[in-house]
Design a protein around this nucleic acid. Structure first.
Lengths: 173, 173
DNA sequence: AGGATATCGTTTGGGAGCGAACGAGTGGAG
DNA sequence: CTCCACTCGTTCGCTCCCAAACGATATCCT
């Protein structure tokens, strides 16, 4: 249901610009930043929703569960807190997600032999096999939603986003 | 805690590229699309987290509650399902969010006189006043996280994202 | 050695978030 | 006028998501 906001033609953003200018004044309002940032949220929202309903649905995996499994597939066994950081969620959230993945037999947990506070998480054989099939489809879908961008434009997009990412890290008060 | 993945230098993406190529083969793998799409998710995740902890925290508003209030601020009174679509959430989720906003006195609900199935939602005086102060800060933060992008680059970024948005709408099977 | 200090993952409480089922209300077909 | 199909917002069950508090473990200091 959440198509993620209404229109992509910019109608709503223009309306927003009018309203905001009228209410908080010309100064103190950076429209270019609004357009850039709000579109990031819109695309992320809409794309996430689409991925969950298309490629992820048959596997009964949430986007987050997929992300966690993907990270493990790429990096191999990881300590909990690193896995959480890599997946972009808190350790508290990870506990629940890993519990879900473990219940489905896609992931295995074991405790560190030397430091018993640590918990190591790894994809199971099933988990890896699943990702091998699933990620092909996922990547095809990534290509599908970006099909109207040239390779150069995709690179440009990724580059600008990495610039923001770097800024966010520096701002990390 | 979720800084949103580890590094913005592309280290992890390179690692991902290696692994994926090794496991699903050269063909059937579009790295440019992976880089573009995954960075959208990373930025959205990290930025959302930052907004919630900086500008939104003092107002005790979640990112979604802020979005809903913002939409009402821009568009005025809206029917529930349109508000949900505009905010990018399902109507079921909206019921809960509006309940929260209503409890805080930022929003008002009334039923349509002609069609009694409909519920109309609008920002209250308090809600509008709150947004007037809050959005100034929010927009400043949008500018801050995009500070290393020129105006032209922000426009380029927004443009590419809108291209994806348009594709997502067309793909809407 | 032993007590403060720090760090780990888990738990808890509360707000999102979805799909599906639901009751109330509308409007069309006969 | 009365079924019937449709649409509205709410509710329900489940997963995610965070901050904060917690118990267990490790380390540092003297």
């Amino acid at each position: 249901m959440p198509t993620g906001f209404s229109s992509s033609d910019g109608t709503d953003l223009l309306r927003a610009e009018e309203t905001v200018r009228a209410r908080i004044g010309e100064h103190d309002f950076d429209f270019a930043s609004l357009a850039a940032v709000s579109n990031v949220f819109r695309v992320a929202n809409t794309a996430r929703y689409r991925f969950e309903r298309s490629v992820l649905r048959p596997y009964d995996l949430s986007f987050t569960a997929f992300t966690v499994l993907w990270v493990l597939w790429i990096w191999g066994e990881l300590e909990s807190r690193h896995l959480a950081a890599e997946a972009g969620i808190t350790k508290g959230t990870l506990t629940g997600v890993v519990k879900t993945l473990e219940r489905r037999g896609l992931v295995e947990r074991r405790s560190h032999s030397a430091d018993r506070r640590l918990v190591l998480v790894a994809a199971s054989g099933d988990g890896a096999a699943t990702m091998e099939r699933l990620y092909s489809e996922f990547n095809r879908e990534e290509a599908r939603i970006t099909q109207h961008l040239s390779a150069a434009e995709k690179q440009e997009l990724a580059h600008h986003l990495r610039t923001i990412l770097r800024t966010l890290e520096l701002l990390d008060d």
